[in-house]
């Protein structure tokens, strides 16, 4: 499973005409609204069948494609 590809496909809905880089801060670009954080958490849980918990709710885990990818990989190892 290509984790980054799935993340990019999801984010494309919000950044359709912008070439988002893997290390670019999603939240600093001003494209996302307040519901986005929740939708992002639900996307990660649903797509990768992992549970995002209290201790994962650190913005640094969600800030970039790279950060999201490593959070998901870590959780997949724990649950897998």
């Amino acid at each position: 499973m290509d984790v980054k590809l799935k993340i990019k496909q999801f984010l494309a809905r919000y950044f359709k005409d912008y070439n988002l880089q893997d290390d670019e801060d999603i939240f600093s670009l001003g494209f996302v609204n307040s519901l986005f954080a929740m939708q992002l958490v639900m996307f990660v849980e649903q797509t990768f069948q992992i549970a995002i918990a209290d201790e994962d709710l650190n913005i640094d885990n969600f800030r970039t494609i790279n950060a999201l990818s490593s959070l998901i990989q870590r959780k997949l190892v724990v649950t897998g």
């Binding site: 494309a12 809905r13 919000y14 950044f15 359709k16 005409d17 912008y18 001003g30 494209f31 996302v32 609204n33 307040s34 519901l35 986005f36």
Partner: peptide, 17 residues
């Protein structure tokens, strides 16, 4: 406001801040 922003986001693929 939130419904409208979401609707525009779906339409343009880019959400207003």
């Amino acid at each position: 406001v939130m419904i409208s922003r979401n609707t525009f986001a779906e339409y343009t693929g880019r959400s207003a801040a």
